[in-house]
């Protein structure tokens, strides 16, 4: 029966549960990427501010998210903040909050890097032709910056997708957790279960992450000219 280890995937509602787990993973990841990107652009613009106070606060925010592990953040928000404010937040919502804030911090740094890498004469020329503050960013700086930040942004997105597997620690059942449940249930009878389950999870992650890579490649090619 050992060569039929793949059968564990088709027992009962196993496949459906794996799919639900996948939807949970993808949902948390993509919501966080979208929210994080918007916040991150604002963050990046703030980082280019001349004000020392603003710079310090933004820098502080970024370092706080960079230094403290995401798992700790999940614990702080899920167990700490909800308890302190006496509110109940579902693990899924906490996950989206934490991953969005993390995304904002990291995306902010990517946006800042892209903006600062633009030659200074772009800003000066823009100002010289009488563009307003908004006009300068809208028509000159952001379009150029977006192209430069794309690889970093895609990189961050795939990292966020993979890091979502930490959410099991706050009781959210994602695709990896469903996989573990299936393996542990059947491992004594079907020793090869882990191979098939993790194999499928590998393919599922690939399905989520690969379109991001393709998208980035296409956009880069499109903006080349």
């Amino acid at each position: 029966m050992q060569n039929l280890g793949i059968n564990v995937l088709f027992e009962g509602t196993t496949l459906q549960r794996l799919f639900e787990g996948l939807m949970m993973t993808a949902g948390i990841a993509f919501l966080s990427i979208i929210i994080g990107s918007f916040l991150g652009v604002g963050m990046g613009l703030l980082r280019t501010s001349k004000s020392k106070v603003v710079q310090f606060i933004c820098r502080f925010y970024l370092e706080v998210f960079r230094i403290i592990p995401i798992l700790v953040w999940l614990f702080i928000v899920y167990f700490g903040v909800t308890n302190a404010l006496d509110i109940h937040l579902d693990g899924e919502i906490v996950a989206v909050i934490v991953f969005s804030l993390w995304g904002a911090a990291e995306m902010g740094d990517i946006v800042r890097g892209a903006l600062e890498s633009l030659p200074k004469h772009q800003i000066e020329s823009g100002k010289a032709i009488g563009l307003s503050f908004w006009g300068l960013y809208r028509y000159v700086l952001i379009p150029q910056a977006v192209r430069r930040m794309l690889p970093g942004a895609i990189n961050l997105s795939t990292r966020m997708v993979k890091t979502t597997s930490l959410v099991v620690m706050i009781g959210v059942i994602d695709v990896v957790k469903v996989g573990q449940q299936i393996i542990e249930r059947s491992v004594i009878k079907v020793p090869t279960a882990s191979f098939w389950v993790y194999g499928l999870i590998f393919i599922l992650y690939f399905i989520i992450c690969y379109p991001l890579s393709t998208l980035s490649k296409k956009l880069e090619a499109k903006w080349e000219n």
Binding site: G12, T14, E184, R185
Partner: peptide, 14 residues
Amino acid sequence: FSDKPPFGFVDANG
């Protein structure tokens, strides 16, 4: 637990 048979686990039907 959801993955520690036989104490707490999830069966084939979830």
